[in-house]
């Protein structure tokens, strides 16, 4: 009886009310803190974009896009850099995407549980954590000096291809895994072979996820600088690579693969590390274009993901 009245008294007491109020206040403060920190992170993003725009926005012009690099900041441009980025990305995509999708299909659809599969899986997880510059060192030792591919577009593309391969494999596996087994069983029941099932059912249904993963991986490769410096990118190239086409049969030419290369981030790095402020303006302008490239790729990936998510309901 005394206990009961004691509890009743305590519940009505101001001490308890105060403690509840304090806890609730603390809770609200904590929520506010989370919101605040999020705001700070977003503010940094805006500051970065704002700073680049303020510094380099005025430098963006047709002349900037169509000029070679120069000793004179006002005449310099990024023609070789953006063409280089596109060509390197082409090699990277051609190297990493078929290999990555193939590896993912093997791991998800073909391989059973064996120690070999385990080795491959652990290996891929570890590769994803290797610093990018280490890939550059490997490419320098192996591709440039052992295989004699030179400091070329081919080397650069393959280096970045190796770098994003784990990302491609991981993204593709996730996409393939989201296709329900019933789809495969239905295909087998109709007499399809394993490859027919994969080609006609599993791959088309997971295309949204695969595409998203590819674009995100390539957007990572677009901004990658360090491994390309290691394999020997030039920052001052005043000529264009050989065109990938030619007048006579077979009309495509692969000479450009062995030309010396530069890419957007390398050009920007070169300009940032010069002491003159005029070059910093160029760096900011190049950075804006680079930023626009990678943000646009991310935006496309987000849109694709959202569209495919809406369309497919298992």
């Amino acid at each position: 009886m005394r206990l009961k009245s004691g509890i009743a008294k305590y519940i009505k007491s101001t001490a308890l009310q105060r403690r509840i109020m304090r806890r609730k206040g603390l809770d609200r403060f904590f929520a506010f803190e989370g919101l605040f920190v999020m705001g700070v992170a977003l503010l940094v993003l805006f500051a970065l974009v704002g700073q680049l725009t303020a510094d380099g926005g005025g430098r963006l012009s047709w002349q900037f896009l169509t000029s070679f690099p120069s000793r004179f900041p006002a005449q310099a441009g990024i023609l070789t850099a953006w063409i280089g980025t596109i060509l390197v990305m082409l090699v990277t995509a051609l190297a990493a995407i078929p290999l990555g999708i193939g590896a993912a299909i093997y791991l998800e659809e073909y391989s059973g549980k064996s120690w070999l599969t385990d080795v491959i899986e652990i290996n891929i997880a570890n590769l994803a954590g290797v610093p990018s510059i280490v890939y550059g060192l490997m490419a320098l030792g192996l591709l440039v000096y052992e295989l004699h591919l030179g400091q070329s577009f081919l080397t650069a593309g393959l280096t970045l291809g190796m770098l994003i391969l784990p990302m491609v494999i991981i993204a593709t596996r996730e996409a393939i895994r989201s296709v329900p087994p019933a789809v495969r069983e239905a295909a087998y029941a109709l007499g399809a072979t394993k490859w027919q099932t994969v080609r006609d059912h599993v791959l088309p249904y997971s295309m949204g996820g695969i595409l998203t993963g590819m674009i995100l991986a390539l957007s990572r490769a677009v901004g990658e600088t360090a491994p390309l410096i290691t394999v020997g990118a030039l920052s001052f190239i005043a000529f264009l690579p050989h065109p990938p086409w030619q007048g006579e049969f077979p009309f495509v030419s692969f000479e450009w693969l062995f030309d010396p290369f530069t890419v957007m981030p390398i050009q920007m790095f070169n300009w940032v590390s010069r002491p003159q402020e005029e070059f910093h303006v160029n760096a900011a302008a190049a950075g804006l274009i680079l930023l626009a490239m990678s943000l646009a790729m991310n935006a496309v990936a987000i849109v694709i993901r959202a569209r495919f998510r809406k369309r497919i309901h298992w």
Binding site: A41, L52, H280
Partner: peptide, 15 residues
């Protein structure tokens, strides 16, 4: 937020 990790590192260097 994920855009924060999409910004090329060389741009962060400039920043």
């Amino acid at each position: 937020l994920e855009l924060l990790s999409a910004v090329p590192t060389v741009v962060y260097g400039y920043f």
